[in-house]
Structure formats: structure tokens, C-alpha cells
């Protein structure tokens, strides 16, 4: 009787784990996401982005100040 209870408990445990796995619920907050090492191309793109954003922000401020 005790063994049967234990087996039933194990089944539920297994079924629960399978459910979590099939619905990817256990993966939440568990897959590690690490900092990526940037290649030259990406580094160059990021520098372009910095300059582009600085320039555009200045232009928006100029544009807005013309209207106000």
C-alpha cells in the first residue's frame, strides 16, 4: 500500500515535470543569457548609432525650437 502511494507520488512528480517541460514553463528565468563578444562590424555599427542618435537629437531640438 505504501509502495503504491510512493509510485503514485512519483507519477504525479513526473507528469508535472513533463508538463512544465512541454509548455516550457521551467525555462522561465532559467536559460542563462550572457554578454556577447562584439565583432568589429557590430562595434562599428554601434559607433555609427551613437553619432546618428546624437545628430538626430540635436536636429529634433532645433526643429522643435523653430515652432515654439
Amino acid at each position: 500500500m505504501a509502495t503504491e502511494g510512493k509510485e503514485n507520488e512519483n507519477d504525479v512528480e513526473k507528469e508535472f515535470e513533463e508538463f512544465l517541460k512541454s509548455e516550457e514553463l521551467e525555462e522561465y528565468d532559467k536559460i542563462p543569457v550572457n554578454r556577447v563578444k562584439l565583432g568589429r562590424g557590430v562595434k562599428a555599427a554601434f559607433w555609427f548609432l551613437r553619432i546618428y542618435i546624437a545628430l538626430m537629437v540635436v536636429l529634433v531640438v532645433i526643429g522643435f525650437s523653430h515652432v515654439i
Partner: peptide, 26 residues
């Protein structure tokens, strides 16, 4: 089964509700 339901109830609130939605979808 009720054992499974108990297991799900033991999850943190946000995961538990998501798990219930996923059971429905499953």
C-alpha cells in the same frame, strides 16, 4: 488530478496563472 493541481498551486503567482492558461491550451 488533484495532486497535479496542488503542484501547480505551489508555483509563484505569475507562473501559476501562466501554467493554468497553458493547461487550458494543452
Amino acid at each position: 488530478g488533484h495532486e497535479m493541481e496542488e503542484k501547480i498551486n505551489s508555483l509563484p503567482a505569475e507562473i501559476r496563472l501562466r501554467a493554468e492558461d497553458r493547461i487550458h491550451i494543452n
